[in-house]
Simulated scan of single mutants.
Amino acid sequence: MKRVFAGAVMAMGLLLAGPASWAAGGVEQLRQFVKATRSAEGEFEQTVLAKSGRKPQQAAGSFAFSRPGKFRWEYQTPYQQLLVGDGERLWIWDRDLNQVTVKRIGDALGATPAAILFGSGDLEQNFELAEGGDSEGLAWVEARPKQEGSGFEAMRIGLAGGQVKRMEMRDNFGQTTTVLFPRFVLNPPVDAGRFRFMPPTGADVIGDDTTKGGR
């Protein structure tokens, strides 16, 4: 399914990571990144490769978030789709179809790839972390969810200079999603209105608790 929200990952600015962290292993860099990051905005590039190896699906767009649990993830090419998490619900708007799907978030972010970006920061409560070695100029962290139902089997996070540069996720169907961040701004002031959503007039709304929102 090409329009599936994949968790994504963000970079930590050099000003937020001291020289000691630059030389640290991937796990320590990731811990410091999660600890120091409260909000962010930027752009992403995503590639999804099916287990069958058929032609990869590519997409790109912009994002913003404010921890914990509030985010805006907007696909701009090759299709337009908006995902907004308001801390309680996840709203997914397919612009082409003018269709909105809404789901309760609850504790669902805890052990998913999205928790690296938008979660509460309880990394080792939800993931088993291990050093993944160095390659492609990055220090890699291997992460596996401690609980079932997270939707993915394993995740690799590549860091350099205290920044998260790349995330690779393999889901339970053998599909691999890679997310890169060509632009990432750490801890900017973010308008809270970006994390509210109201279904557009005439939209077909599917899911739970559709009476609240605010876009």
Rank of each mutant, 00 (worst) to 15 (best):
G132Q: 09
F173A: 02
E124N: 04
F173D: 03
G7N: 03
K165P: 01
L180D: 08
A8N: 09
F63R: 03
V205I: 11
G121I: 06
F197Y: 12
L109K: 05
P200L: 05
G61K: 00
V9E: 03
K35F: 12
V164K: 00
R95L: 14
V205W: 09
D208K: 13
D107N: 13
G214E: 07
M169K: 01
G137C: 05
G162D: 10
V185W: 00
S39D: 07
G106H: 10
A50T: 10
I206E: 04
E153N: 11
D208M: 09
T112R: 10
G214C: 09
G162H: 06
G162P: 13
K212P: 08
E148R: 12
G133E: 08
L15I: 09
D94P: 11
R104F: 01
F181H: 01
F127K: 09
M169I: 14
L82A: 05
G151M: 08
T112M: 06
E28C: 11
T37H: 05
P182Q: 02
I157E: 05
D209W: 07
G133R: 03
Y79E: 07
E74V: 10
K51Y: 07
T210M: 09
V84N: 05
G202E: 09
L117H: 01
P188H: 06
L49T: 15
A115P: 13
N126Y: 15
A160H: 12
M198F: 05
A203I: 01
A203H: 07
L159R: 01
G214L: 11
P145N: 03
L90I: 11
Q163K: 13
D134H: 14
M169T: 15
V141L: 13
V34T: 12
